[in-house]
Amino acid sequence: MELLNDMALFVEVAKAKGFRGASEATGVPNSTLSRRISALEKAIGLRLLHRTTRRVELTEAGQVYFERCKRIVDEARLAHEQLGEMLAQPSGVLRASLPVDFAVIYMAPLIAEFAERYPGIRFDFDLTPRQVDLVSEPFDVAIRIGEPESSHLIARPLASFVQRLYASPSYLKRSGVPMEPADLARHECLNVLRDRPWTLHRGKQSIQVSTSSRFTLNNVGLIRRFATLGMGIVLITDELAADDVAAGRLVRVLPQWQGKPIPVYALTETRLLPAKTQRFIEFLKERLAKNHAGT
């Protein structure tokens, strides 16, 4: 890259027939230009320029070198412009693995907006709960909620979602409203996969409470649905509860307390990503940050 930059500077000096004109064109100081060209001549082992007090002229070797450098620099600039166009309007199939409920409930409008912005991209989404293998399977990116399990993947943070406690009005009418976190031990607390303690925060105060449930589930959407049907209290993100809260099917419980923030990551096998994947990750990070401004 440094050699290509020196070649580009040499082309500008040759075109301007002097260091002052080349300095004005490139913004590189005269002294730096002179030093870089001298280093280039030393590396090649040939004098490329005749320097006078007023101007510089190409030597015979310099003329040959100039013509070749100009062609290389022009091709490099053209390639850069073409890559810029590809980044501006990427195309191809974007293969992504997404969390089922998060994708259906929250990401769907974001994906629709992204698809409208980039009409050249087609989409192949996998919404099964399994953990796809980004190394052996043809996925460009996996969006995951929670800390990544594999250290072999590149994890790019997208957002962090706050968890809060929700229950249906019917459940609270039947079982009572918990007034403090310790009361949750006497309630049906719907968890993912297994009974586990909930760590709740209120400002700098933190407390861990034991939870138990008749149900063992591995799907957040079903947990949320059970909560709307009066089956217990659930700890989920505001985003997943928003529609049910707006419809009156869920209400906040212990509103001054909240669970541990849940991070959202974009996982890829490599840092070198095609334009379609770069744009998708950048878009999600931008929109998620915008949606959570001030929360």
Rank of each mutant, 00 (worst) to 15 (best):
L83G: 08
E81A: 06
S34Y: 12
A108C: 05
G259F: 03
A293T: 14
L9M: 07
D243Y: 09
E2G: 00
A25E: 14
R287A: 09
E2W: 10
C69K: 04
C189A: 12
H50D: 14
A22C: 02
G120E: 13
L222T: 15
H152G: 06
V162C: 00
I145T: 06
L153I: 06
E149I: 02
S170Q: 12
E116A: 13
N218C: 04
F161V: 05
I281W: 04
E286M: 13
S212K: 06
K260W: 05
A247N: 10
E180K: 15
A182Q: 11
T295N: 14
L127T: 12
Y65S: 02
V132C: 05
R35Q: 13
L272A: 10
R224N: 12
C189V: 15
K15F: 13
D126C: 14
P181F: 08
E113F: 03
D238N: 10
G203K: 07
L58S: 04
G221D: 09
P119K: 02
P90R: 04
L222S: 11
F10K: 03
N5Q: 14
L33P: 15
N291K: 15
G21E: 15
A246G: 02
N219V: 00
S175A: 15
I44T: 06
V220C: 02
D101E: 08
P109Y: 07
P197I: 06
Q82L: 13
W257F: 11
D183Q: 08
A112N: 03
S168A: 14
M7A: 05
K70V: 01
D140N: 09
T216D: 02
R144H: 08
K42C: 01
V245Q: 06
I207F: 03
R156Y: 09
R130T: 03
W257P: 05
S38P: 03
V73N: 09
A155L: 03
V192Y: 15
K260Y: 08
R47N: 01
L40M: 12
E282V: 02
L58C: 03
M107C: 11
G232H: 09
F283G: 00
A8E: 13
R252Y: 08
L48A: 12
R130I: 01
T211K: 12
D244R: 14
R68T: 09
L4R: 04
L165C: 07
S160P: 01
R186G: 04
L190A: 13
D140H: 05
I111P: 00
A227N: 13
E149Q: 07
T211H: 05
G248R: 03
G232F: 13
I143N: 06
V73W: 07
A159E: 08
E2I: 02
E41L: 10
F226R: 09
D243E: 08
T268Y: 04
R196H: 11
K15M: 13
R55D: 11
